[in-house]
Design a protein around this nucleic acid. Sequence first.
DNA 1: GTGACGATGTAGCGTCACTGCATGGATCCG
DNA 2: CGGATCCATGCAGTGACGCTACATCGTCAC
Lengths: 304, 304
Amino acid sequence: MDPRTLETLRAIGTQGGVTAAAAVLHLTPSAVSQQVALLQREVGVHLTERVGRGLRLTPAGEALAEAAMDVAVALERARAACDEFLVRPQGVVRVSAFQTGAQLLLPALLTRVARSPLLAGITLECTDEDVAQDDFVALTDRMDVVVAHRPDDGLGWAGGGAVEVVPLLREPLDVAVPIDHPLAHRTEVHPDDLRDLPWIAVREGFPVATVLGAVGARSGSAPRIVHRVNDFHVVEALVEAGHGVSLLPRYTFGGEGRVRLVPLVGVRAGRRIDALLRRDRAERLVVRRVLDELRALAVEIGTA
Amino acid sequence: MDPRTLETLRAIGTQGGVTAAAAVLHLTPSAVSQQVALLQREVGVHLTERVGRGLRLTPAGEALAEAAMDVAVALERARAACDEFLVRPQGVVRVSAFQTGAQLLLPALLTRVARSPLLAGITLECTDEDVAQDDFVALTDRMDVVVAHRPDDGLGWAGGGAVEVVPLLREPLDVAVPIDHPLAHRTEVHPDDLRDLPWIAVREGFPVATVLGAVGARSGSAPRIVHRVNDFHVVEALVEAGHGVSLLPRYTFGGEGRVRLVPLVGVRAGRRIDALLRRDRAERLVVRRVLDELRALAVEIGTA
DNA sequence: GTGACGATGTAGCGTCACTGCATGGATCCG
DNA sequence: CGGATCCATGCAGTGACGCTACATCGTCAC
């Protein structure tokens, strides 16, 4: 019953396979396979079952993986109990964020952490991660804090009780039009104003892809999507050049003077930015501190 | 942060030293010493401090030891989660009891466990342990279930949140007198009837040693203790031979025809029999099952 | 059917934790 | 006051365990 082995089992569950689990654990697939084989011998129950050329956890495996998280939490709590006696806790915290979230939050976060003397022991390692909506949770295995976004009205995050969700802020999505567009001088637009316009959307399955659908539903006609581009800077350039209109997040917008952003009313268009982290990682003192800064930063942005 | 190492730290705390901890862990003192040295290097805080030629845990060490129990609990819970998928859980359960408790409970417990087909996988290992009042808790490190007794009115068990206390039953203490004693034909006696009698008590510091003091206090004069004997069979023989009177537990009494047991009224004289077990051990499915049987057995005895 | 991918065994190797022994304080007792 | 004892700790040696690398087998896609 080694916690490492338990964590390995968990990784197989969340990552969906031996090879993927091995990747996040920095091990070879062989090692992972041997670990679960030994674990199964120990508990006397089948924990995995083959499905196609991969495998998944059995109910018993799921149960054990769930319990494994509690073990990890207890362990981190123990470590934190010691850190309380340290003047200044040390450690690296790995933070990932989707591109515009990174742009919005990470520079200020780094500044805040660097400025505070109490956080001097903390080393931040930042990454930007562009993944599909459903894949944000899986990132928590590699990262300590994952800044993710989801449609305003969408459901929460799947992940069982394993991930903690910390709401950071809500960012409205405005309609981006060229500066010479008929709508450019409006102070607000209704979904009805947007009928038959050529849309530039994000790729299917990616966050806020569904928002445009909601706008279309409100106006009564499905939006005409002419391009699918994930990078908002590219989107801005396309809108500026008159190749279509789009929905762009307000706080991250950087196209002033080249593109007009018009608030959308009559439909709730926005995205929620959350911090995702595994329950065990949340116990780490340094992670908690970083999270506090992140939350404070979000409040600052939301009230500005 | 190995759970084994954490358990070692805990053992140093509960057993009060490296050597004692090594004994219960089946290790050499050297190994224990090296483990804590490594652990201290890892957390960066002093966990132990020398006191005389022994050592004790620092506040940080205590905190970590406390957290270590939560880790152990989580681990056992994980193991239990797997056992739920087993038709019949297997494992050995080590039970210890003080002598008369063992006499009263263990035979019937073994019978019950052997009889039930659902408990067929359980192997019971019984021991009798005669220790001072304060040392019962420490036994939980070596045993799964410790049947202990304490004065009726006494305080509970020290042990922080680490040990679970399961009350089993209350056993009255009666006055044991020779069959030809003036009090032998009474249906009950008061403390006042006992003035100036020669008493046979248990050794200082051992369970129920304090009860006699309470009887004396009620009668107004300190009891005259002529012998101190822990083994109740020896006490019975001494009483039978007219060397004094004593307080003997009612359910365990085996001297019918040779010694008279007279109920004592006017003062609350009795002992409580509890099962003590570490919180992590309590999570083990097989331990739970045994504990259920033990509790049912106690109810049976108490209502007989 | 062939190629790619994914899981799983086997051999070899490095690492790590334990035992055994020696050392150095601290306490107890003559 | 000094020898004996107890306890914790450091160091060398050894054994076990878990990892990597490589080979194998089964499954899916084209």
